[in-house]
Computed example of a mutant assay.
Amino acid sequence: MSTQKSFAKGSTAPGPVPEGTIRLYSMRFCPFAQRARLVLQAKGIKHDVVNINLKEKPDWFLEKNPLGLVPTLETPSGQVIYESPITCEYLDEVYPDNKLLPSDPFEKAQQKMMLECYSKVVPYFYKIPMGKRNGEDVSALEGELKEKLAKLNEHLKTKKSNYMAGDSITMIDYMMWPWFERMEGMQLKHFLDGTPELKKWTERMLEDPAVKETMHAPDTHIGFYTSYIAGKADYDYGL
């Protein structure tokens, strides 16, 4: 089964995970869950999706994952895996076709180090829009984000590659993409104006089939984000 509308507290649990597939517990607008959806699509893995209301989480979901996090994977045998980098690496190991992580240990370590550095960038995508909405002075945060994006731009320029780790999309590209998809909706897209190589990277990513399959239009992101910051997150926005 795959669902669009989210399951909330009091809902009936979905049936068992069918043999030959894997289940993703997700939320339509969660960038961390989108990481797993990108990998599932890119690798052509047979799967179903169960969306979760993250404010009113079903008891049956908390029994599977007491932390209540998405993405969460569940196998037909009942194994449960969560945390976005872990779920994505698991998928790449268990389903060997269309490998996204390099086999070379050093190259794999480089991707993990880059992801660790990128994790320090992610908070800015939230702090700046929220700060602006609250009337705060976010100029220092904006300067820091520009600096961090400039480093990514320099990485691409120095590497002379189309993507973060070479001339084809690999895991690190999918791990970074969801927040760039949301830049327009968060009114941050102008930060790419001073990073031409990074801007080209976003344009290439938009042509990727997995990105096209998992993305939302900017207006849809804006609609959800508006409901979220108003304290009334509409997880079924647009359905």
Rank of each mutant, 00 (worst) to 15 (best):
A217Y: 14
D92Q: 09
E136M: 11
V70P: 02
Y90F: 14
D104E: 13
L100P: 02
W179V: 01
K57H: 06
G231H: 12
H221E: 04
A210F: 02
A210G: 02
D234T: 12
D59K: 12
M175Q: 13
L198K: 13
Q110W: 07
L141R: 09
R23N: 11
L62Y: 08
S161L: 01
M186Y: 11
K112L: 12
L67K: 12
Y118M: 08
D48A: 09
M114H: 04
G231D: 14
E154I: 07
K43P: 02
G10M: 07
P31E: 04
K127T: 11
Y25M: 08
R23F: 07
L145G: 09
F224S: 00
M1Q: 07
T72R: 12
K9V: 00
P178K: 12
Y90Q: 06
P66K: 05
L91Y: 09
Q34N: 03
P16A: 11
I172C: 14
Q34M: 10
Q111V: 08
T158G: 08
G135I: 03
E83C: 10
V211I: 09
P178S: 00
P18G: 05
L192H: 08
A165W: 13
V39R: 12
K148S: 07
E213K: 15
G185P: 03
P31F: 02
V94Q: 10
E83Q: 15
A230T: 01
T170M: 15
N153L: 05
T3N: 10
R37F: 00
F61M: 09
V49W: 00
F180H: 14
M186I: 07
S2V: 05
G44H: 12
A217R: 05
S84L: 01
P196K: 14
E93M: 11
L54K: 08
F29V: 01
M114Y: 07
F191K: 09
E184L: 02
V122T: 15
A8E: 10
G194P: 06
F29E: 02
R37A: 10
K159Q: 10
K146Y: 00
T21G: 04
